[in-house]
Amino acid sequence: MKTPGIIILAAGLGTRYKQAGGRGNKLLALQQNQQSLLALTLQQAQTSGLPLLLVTRPEYDTILDLADRRHIPAIAVASNGSGESIAAAVQHTRNWSGWLIQPGDMAWVTTQDHQRVARALADGAQQVRLCWQEQPGHPVGFAASYGEALSRLTGDNGARALLDPMILQKISAHAGVIVDADLPETTNRS
């Protein structure tokens, strides 16, 4: 049976993080439990039981090693933005019945969050987004019918342009679905 899978985006340059004084790759910033931000994100996604693909940059050896140690498939893309990363991942996973897209710096998205979005797609939703107090969050889910459009994305706007408010199913969730680590003070919240 075909199932939706999770794309974790880890090919960004962390520009906002570095401009705000952060050092190194924010995805590798250690949390209070001594795991990296990305390791926590991957752990939640992997525990969901859904297929998983990590998209990172060719020069991010430590991230590629982390994926290898956790037996998580990964592709390396010299991406110019999240749109290109999503396109490469969708092209690599054409056999999936849908895609849950999530940035790698959102370690507060839970296994249950992934499962809720996947279940909504399996139940026939075409687009799904978790929200907290009407603020858009992640992951964002797209049905298989969006495969071609997702595989043609470019730039750094991700899949926002494909979202249609008339068919987007919003699911209320917790505050963790909107928290990312663009600022140094948010990388140590566990």
Rank of each mutant, 00 (worst) to 15 (best):
D123A: 14
A78P: 05
S172W: 03
G81I: 12
Q44E: 13
G147K: 01
Q34Y: 00
A76C: 11
G137M: 05
E148L: 10
A45D: 07
G49Q: 03
R16D: 07
L27G: 07
T62P: 00
L168S: 08
I101L: 14
T110Q: 13
Y60E: 13
G137S: 04
I101E: 09
P165M: 01
I178T: 15
N157P: 00
A78L: 12
Q102W: 02
L52E: 05
R129N: 06
G104A: 04
I72E: 03
A78H: 12
L9D: 04
A122C: 14
L40G: 02
G155V: 12
A67C: 07
I75L: 10
G158D: 08
L150W: 09
S79C: 10
L28S: 07
A125K: 05
E134R: 07
G155S: 13
V140T: 15
A67H: 07
Q133L: 15
S145T: 14
R23I: 11
I86T: 08
L100Q: 06
W108M: 12
R189I: 12
V90Y: 10
G83W: 06
T93Q: 15
L64D: 01
A67E: 05
R152Y: 00
V179H: 06
G5V: 08
G83M: 11
L13N: 12
A87S: 15
H92R: 15
V55M: 04
M166H: 13
G83V: 09
L50V: 14
V117E: 08
G98C: 04
I171S: 10
Q19A: 14
G14D: 09
A143H: 14
I72Y: 02
Q115K: 12
I75R: 05
A39I: 00
Q126P: 01
P139W: 04
A78S: 15
R70T: 01
D61K: 10
L64V: 10
W99D: 11
W96V: 08
T187F: 02
R16P: 00
L150N: 11
E59V: 10
P58N: 13
I171H: 07
A118D: 05
V177S: 06
